[in-house]
Structure formats: structure tokens, C-alpha cells
Amino acid sequence: MGIHVARFKVGEETRWGLVREEQVIPIPGQYSSLAEFLGEGAARARALAMGGQGEAIPLARVELLAPVTAPCNVVCQGQNYRSHMLEVGQDPDAKDFNQFFRKASSSLASNQSNILKPARVRMLDYEIELGLIIGRKISGPVRVERERLHEFIAGLVICNDISARDLQLLEGQWYKGKSFRTFCPVGPYVYLIDQEDIARLMNLRLVLSVNGEVRQDASTAEMVYPPEETLTELSELMDLYPGDLLLTGTPSGVAAGRNMSKLARSVGKLISVFLSDKTLAKIILKKQSGDNSAYLKDGDVIRASISSPDGVIHLGTQENRIVDGR
């Protein structure tokens, strides 16, 4: 069974600790980043979990920080859940490529941070995602098998891929629309996995609510491209390092999904033949902003959790509030 570790602040000191029963036990040593912690720090965490001694501090007395630290690669998969593809008018059975994009690592935030909504953004969206923490350097093509995932993935974490849909659609810039500061809440914990956890990886439940209303509720079993296939392909493209973060896609229920499949059916082939991409984007934006109240606004509270049905894997809970920015 894996273990939960957290990056936290107590007083003026930032530490890493083993989380157990609403308490955190500081792990010996100072680690300035997740990448640094994943070496000696992770080994010390496992030793503590096996019965090592340490002073336990109630979680209520510490400030939990983002367990994924910048700088790092933040790589994302687009349209990787069948239900999400269907809600935006796409056919998951016709998809024949793995879609990748990036988020800036400066968008990382903690599980309780306010999410700052830029004044120019009108259509702010949420996307609960399972995050995979890279555990070893990958500097060339490798073949990753499901049963060997623990050799490449150090741990799991909850992520929320906050997205400015108006910028994403109108400007065609996913990086800009998804990379504002605070647009990637992570944590509260990193769950350091063991080999036995791999069997549960494709049966995790993702749940996200806004102001108490459940918007997303699905299983990782829906993934079109599972982690082993994705890591195999990514290894052909780029170098990955310990502490890098891979977001594996979101299921249905995002704000942008409301009315989208209906809109896609109503315009059909005429739009794709006679209208430019920019004109199409403007039509979608006008329809979405006028008829869709699901987009995030000042004061909204997002709660997100990921767990296995048997409760063995539980990644904690995020609770983030939307705050209008400048």
C-alpha cells in the first residue's frame, strides 16, 4: 500500500511530512522541491510509515502547500475521457491520436488556494484530473507496461485544470488560456504508489462539485489513452524528470460541455464548410456565454476528490474559492 506525503508550513519553516490519521509527521531532512524530495525524502517517508518515530502535528495546525513545485514540466492530455469527448460533440471511437498541451508551472497552487479569475476572462471552467508524478528521468524512448508503471510514476495527485475557455477558443491558445497563476490547484497530498496500487489505477473515482452541486463524477476507466501508452509516446517526444506532472484528462461535466454537443449537432457540416475557425469560435462563445450559467464566478467554491472504490487510494480533498482578479 502506498503512503501520503505533504509539503507544509509550520511557523516560518517549510517541511515535508508523512500524513496519517489527520496528523503529519515531519520527515527528516530539508528538500527544496518535489524533485529533491523524491530521492532520499521518499525513502525516509516509507521508513516512517513502517514504524519509524517522529513527532506528530495535527493537520489543523499546519498550512498545506502545493506538493508539486516549480519549475517542472506540466504536460496535459486533451479529450482523453470518452464521456468528455461525447459532451463536446466528438466521437471517442474515431480518435486516433493522443492530444498533448502544456500549462505553465507558475500556475501551480495549493488545494486551498484562491483561484484568481482575470478581469478579461468571462468563461472560467474547471476540469478535475488525475495527476501522475514522474519518478525517474526519461531521456529517450522507453516501452512502459501497465505492471511496471510504478517504476516510472512516483505518485498520484489531484489536479484541477482551470481553463479560460474564451481565450482558448477565440485565440486558439490553450497554453495562455490554461496557464494564468493559480490555474492548477494540486494536492493536498502526493500518494506515493507501490506496485500493488497499479491494479486500482484505472478504477479511481473522480468527483467535482461547485457550491455543493456535483458537476463531474466518473471513473479513470474511461480513459482513451491510459498512462502506460501515454508515457511510452511522451518518451519519444521529450525528456521527463522526477517531479514533473502529467495531467491525464477530464471526464464529462465541465461548464463548456453544457449545450456544446447540441450546438455541434445543430450547425453540423455547414459550419465546418462555410465558416472560418474564428467565426465558428465567436458563434460558440456567444452561445455559451449567453445560455450557460455553469462557468465559474466570484465566490464559487470548487471541491474535488479522487479515490478508489475500496478506499485504499484516497488523494484527499481540494477546496478552492474563485476570486475576481484585476
Rank of each mutant, 00 (worst) to 15 (best):
M1C: 07
I3G: 02
V10W: 01
E13T: 09
G17P: 06
L18T: 00
P26V: 05
P26D: 04
P28Y: 04
Q30C: 03
S33L: 05
A35Y: 00
A35V: 00
E36Q: 10
A43W: 11
A45L: 11
G52L: 11
L59N: 09
R61I: 07
C76K: 05
Y81G: 03
S83F: 06
K95F: 07
F100K: 04
S107E: 02
Q112N: 09
M123Q: 03
E127M: 10
E129R: 00
I133K: 01
V144L: 00
L149P: 01
A154N: 05
D161H: 11
I162M: 11
A164Y: 07
D166V: 10
Q168M: 12
L169Q: 11
G172T: 10
S179T: 09
F183E: 03
Y191N: 00
I198T: 13
R200L: 14
R200V: 10
L206G: 01
N211R: 14
T220Y: 05
E222W: 13
L231H: 09
S235E: 06
G243R: 05
V254E: 06
G257V: 12
K262Y: 12
V267C: 13
G268W: 12
F274L: 15
A281P: 07
A281C: 11
L285A: 11
K287G: 09
Q288V: 06
Q288I: 06
Q288W: 06
Q288K: 06
S289T: 11
G290F: 13
A294W: 12
L296D: 07
D298W: 06
G299K: 08
V301R: 15
P309E: 13
I313R: 05
T317P: 10
T317V: 15
E319F: 12
R321C: 11
